[in-house]
Design a protein around this nucleic acid. Sequence first.
DNA 1: CTGTTAGCGCATTCAT
DNA 2: ATGAATGCGCTAACAG
Lengths: 350, 350
Amino acid sequence: MRRVTPFNATLADVARLAGVGTTTVSRVINGGESVSPETLARVLAVIEELGYQPNQSARILKGHRAKTIGLIVPSIADSFFSSCAEAAQKIVRAHDSLLIVTVSNNDPTTELESLNVLTRHRTDGLLLAPSDSQNEKLARLLSQMAVPVVSFDRPVSNEAVPSVVSDNFQGAGAAIRHLISHGYKRILCLGGEADLYTVRERIHGYREAMREAGLPVQIDLSITDQLSAESALRKHLSAARPPDAVFTLKNLVTIYIYEALSELRVSVPKKLALFGFDDFELAKTLRPAVSVVQQPIEAIGRIAAELLFSQMEDRSWQKRSPTSKQVQIKLETRLVLRSSCGCCSHGTDQ
Amino acid sequence: MRRVTPFNATLADVARLAGVGTTTVSRVINGGESVSPETLARVLAVIEELGYQPNQSARILKGHRAKTIGLIVPSIADSFFSSCAEAAQKIVRAHDSLLIVTVSNNDPTTELESLNVLTRHRTDGLLLAPSDSQNEKLARLLSQMAVPVVSFDRPVSNEAVPSVVSDNFQGAGAAIRHLISHGYKRILCLGGEADLYTVRERIHGYREAMREAGLPVQIDLSITDQLSAESALRKHLSAARPPDAVFTLKNLVTIYIYEALSELRVSVPKKLALFGFDDFELAKTLRPAVSVVQQPIEAIGRIAAELLFSQMEDRSWQKRSPTSKQVQIKLETRLVLRSSCGCCSHGTDQ
DNA sequence: CTGTTAGCGCATTCAT
DNA sequence: ATGAATGCGCTAACAG
């Protein structure tokens, strides 16, 4: 190691040491066109020796792309969002860019703050799973963005912001219709965080399917952890007309309910069938294995990122007129039938 | 919405509209000291109206902090790293900074490239889980960094790079000694990715504990998915002296083995005890629940980030002499005893 | 093929 | 309390 105190070399440093002008160095680091082989070699050598890396900020200031994409998600510890993020990151990297990740905790204030910080950094585009699909302030701010925005998992209301989401309504409906077709009649819908777009859509799907079949709707949105899951189950099971099946609206809720069911020694699916929205790692390993509505998680992240880059490349992007239709890509979900809904042999568990 | 084509306003724009000089605006956005109340209000109004956000690149160019931290991890879909990332992100945010996430896929080349890109962006510091703890090139590049670096989960060899890791050796040893104390004698060690630092340390812990007890060491590092898990198990179980317990070296391996065990209808822990390194979401929900060595995941991410910021604030950081001791923080692991190791009643499952 | 120069947006002297 | 001028590192005219 030659230098004791590392520092960041500049174009000028390289130029001086190589005995050329700054323009030449600039040419070298930008592809080496119009530079004689000898000069090229000499400059390259100095760059190598100095460990020179161009200062991206200077480039940005010159009006170039920042080569960064902002991502705002409720959480990255959540496997749904971390998988989306991973898929998006692949696309971002393929476009020679970097992903800046911020966490909103589903809090609109934090989210707006993130938006501002990302704006200050002049990211080239933005991917976000909005905490509140109806938030006016967010919608307004988004409409003033100087860069393209794509929302995923949840849309943004009243805005020309394209979104990539699962067909939550259809997926939930399919699950319920499946249960109904197998004879279940009193299907209880369990969940939490009722203000989330996805949850609302799924509830809507449940309602519709129940209405079609002329079955009574029964919804309990009080589940936030295993304790509340247990007490809710206890209550519903000891009612006059207890449910014969439960439909859980969300990954974690399915797990809480599963654990509570096991704790309460309720036989699944014999006494109570279980169907969850969202697949999870060990759903197929549990006994009984859990039937779920599976979302194309990886595709959501990937397509959202691809859509974003296509907008970034679109020179006409600026002309988003208020009349232009909102692009909403709805991805199909898939019913994964395992044993917890009682209509499937163990052998075909997958 | 007033403007049809949003753009990024500049300090000068604000100054012009507010009828003041750029210096005044600069003062306002930096705390508003030495500005008369009226001017302040007027400038603030224009800033609001324009949705002005200072250009961070210009600030960086002026020699200010970028307010970004780079994070390089093998994967973000992996729950271990996404949890670390979430913990780190909290600290980063608390320091009013942004987290740039890159994925190395455990590939040294990709990792070096990420390092360079982050350098170009002049991040204020770097957190990384090095793909290869012995990589010379990485170590060299890291030593030339102009900003502090902290590694986590895995150390960096021969370098004055501080690291925050679990005590893998001790944790594995504790698990094995636990099994031994309960009478298991033929303990098979199963895993994959043998070149990972963490895996090597755990194997070392296993070896030591077995050696202490005078028991025969048996290691199979061929497990990469459920299929290989099944065939490995089949082989070992049909051997002359089959194992009476298995110790799995890694999160996913534990799951593969668990699934394979269930597939092969091997009774756990009756026929074969199971102990895994790394806890996972449903470990306590499975039947039998899986005993594991639990790492303080959140603490790893948090402490690494805190350490990084403390280095960034340390003005004497530059004076890292070759003789200075390498800071290595080793965090204790915890044995979580559930039913799969056969020494614990179901009632105390946690 | 190569060098000189201006200016991106901002914070920072130094005046006033 | 305020403003004019300078320069951070780089690229893009332009000139040679």
